[in-house]
Structure formats: structure tokens, C-alpha cells
Amino acid sequence: MVETEALLSPADVRELAHALDLRPTKRRGQNFLVDPNTVRRLVRLAAVGPDDVALEVGPGLGSLTLGLVTEAAAVAAVEVDPVLAAALPVTAAARLPAAVAARLHVVEADGLRVEPADLPPAVAAPTVLAANLPYNVAVPLLLGLLERFPSIERGLVMVQAEVADRLTSPPGGRIYGVPSVKLAWYAQARPAGAVPRPVFWPQPNVDSGLVAFTRRAAPPADVGLRREVFAAVDAAFAQRRKTLRTALAPWAGSPARAEQLARAAGVDPGARGETLDVEAFARLAQQARILPADQPA
């Protein structure tokens, strides 16, 4: 159970920001959680337990961090801002028992580039991702972390509501697109609720949503195949209103070969990319390996 007195209140957040002479910037997507009830909700939805190593990217002043440290075996908090990174252990030590605060490992690094080797050994293989992701880089952040940290089994991330809808959209939907398919390559994702604007400081100008995900049981380990799948996905949605025969032509080499690959993969070449699930894109990529580029249609 996350103790209320350990969590940051709105007054605590503002006091910490003032002490650090911190002015939240849009460039870094800094909108800090100030509501303890929301923190408890996020920790509960992330299902963080005593056997978990949690990875948090963009901990900021530590609102969510304090809740995670209370529940997890250890927490790796990756913060790119050196001032915030230095302040976070101090905040934890001031509000938590020493044994609990010791579970926190702060890493000053860019979440877009951080790798397991950048983390201390105790937290180099996180099992759960729980984070209020900077909204301006949320999608590449999430996809990159899932790629570089195969130990992550599940997670809960807060993103812009529109992005949450796209990440969790099923095939055939109007907003189904590149983020939907690429996240599906790694994990099964689902919407996990909305987050009101007043729980942040400063309040964002957009609505926020939660995305929960569980790592796919047996994701393809072939990095080359993943890259080929993602290239096919990018091509299919670059010309969203075009049929696969036309949209995939730049990737396949020609409209004729795009049609050939589609038929070999059991996909209608007259369909559009928005109707294909990630398995269909994987079959297309596999056929691209099998069928030589100069094979006649």
C-alpha cells in the first residue's frame, strides 16, 4: 500500500520546483503529477509488486517514483535533466524509510537512447515499465524501450489521449496506423482509462490517457525481420488511401512485386494497410525474404 504521507501533494511539488528554480518546459514535455490519488491509481493499474523491477522514464520531481519505490523490489528512474536527476534521491530519502529509499536507482540519461548497460546491475533487467512519458516523444520512447529492454513483461504509460487511442486501435479503425502496428509487434495493448488535466502542474492543453500492455508471448527475435516489417508498415501507411499494390510498391520494388508478395502472404493486394494486423505485415516481410526481387509476377 502506498502511504499518503510519502507522496507529493500539489504544495510539495511547487515547493520542490521553487527550491530547484525549475520552470517546466514544453520542449521536454514537463507536466508533473500533483495528485496522490492518481499516483496510487497508476501504481495499482501497473500491478507493480514486490518481485518487480520497475523502469520509469521521465520521473521529474518524483511524484510517481515515490509510489513505485514503495511497492517494487527496485526502481530505475531515467531522467535526462541533471538537476532533477540529482534532486530525486534527496526527495526519496526525505520522505521514505531508508530501506525503501535505497530501492531507487536514478540514472541520468536520455530515455530515447538508454540501454540495459547504462543501468546499475540491480535494475538492468526491468520487468515492468511505468511512466508518465513526455508527450512530444512518447511513441518513439515506448517503442525504443520495448526494443532495447526485452525483459519488460508489461507496463502502463501515460500519453496524450489521442496517442493512447492510436496505440490501442484495432485494425480497420480510422485511427489505426503506424503506432498501432508497431506496438502490436511487441505487445498486446489496451486502453486503461483517462487522466484529467487538473492532476498535472502545469495543466497540459491536451487530454491524457493510459495505455496498458503485456509483452507478446513469443515475439519474433529476428531483428532483421522486425526492421523489414516496420519498413512495410511505414510504406503501407505513407499512402493511406492507396491499395497495398500501390502503397507497398516503393518498399517491394514495384507494384507487380508488391502484388506478388501480398498474394504469397495471403493478403488481398487490393486492400488498404489499415485492414492488416501485425501478423499480416510479418507474413509480407517473410515473403519479401523468400521471393527474389527479380522473380516475375
Results as ranks from 00 to 15, higher is better:
residue 162 E to W: 05
residue 163 V to Q: 04
residue 163 V to Y: 05
residue 163 V to H: 05
residue 164 A to Y: 10
residue 165 D to I: 11
residue 166 R to W: 08
residue 166 R to A: 05
residue 166 R to H: 08
residue 167 L to W: 12
residue 168 T to F: 02
residue 168 T to H: 02
residue 168 T to V: 10
residue 169 S to K: 05
residue 169 S to W: 09
residue 169 S to I: 14
residue 169 S to E: 10
residue 169 S to M: 08
residue 169 S to T: 15
residue 170 P to V: 15
residue 170 P to G: 07
residue 171 P to H: 05
residue 171 P to V: 13
residue 172 G to C: 07
residue 172 G to N: 11
residue 172 G to I: 14
residue 173 G to Q: 12
residue 174 R to N: 06
residue 174 R to K: 15
residue 174 R to G: 07
residue 174 R to Y: 02
residue 176 Y to M: 05
residue 177 G to V: 13
residue 177 G to H: 09
residue 177 G to R: 06
residue 177 G to I: 11
residue 177 G to C: 11
residue 178 V to M: 02
residue 178 V to K: 01
residue 180 S to L: 05
residue 180 S to G: 13
residue 180 S to H: 08
residue 182 K to S: 10
residue 182 K to Q: 14
residue 182 K to L: 12
residue 182 K to P: 04
residue 183 L to G: 13
residue 183 L to T: 13
residue 183 L to M: 10
residue 183 L to H: 10
residue 185 W to Q: 08
residue 185 W to G: 06
residue 186 Y to W: 15
residue 186 Y to V: 06
residue 186 Y to H: 15
residue 187 A to N: 10
residue 188 Q to F: 02
residue 189 A to C: 11
residue 189 A to L: 06
residue 190 R to T: 15
residue 190 R to L: 09
residue 192 A to P: 11
residue 193 G to Y: 04
residue 194 A to E: 15
residue 195 V to K: 01
residue 196 P to A: 07
residue 196 P to Y: 09
residue 196 P to L: 04
residue 197 R to Y: 12
residue 197 R to Q: 13
residue 198 P to K: 01
residue 198 P to G: 07
residue 198 P to C: 02
residue 198 P to Q: 08
residue 199 V to D: 01
residue 200 F to M: 03
residue 200 F to P: 03
residue 201 W to R: 00
residue 201 W to G: 00
residue 201 W to L: 00
residue 201 W to P: 01
residue 201 W to N: 00
residue 202 P to R: 00
residue 203 Q to I: 09
residue 203 Q to H: 12
residue 203 Q to M: 07
residue 203 Q to A: 12
residue 203 Q to E: 15
residue 203 Q to L: 02
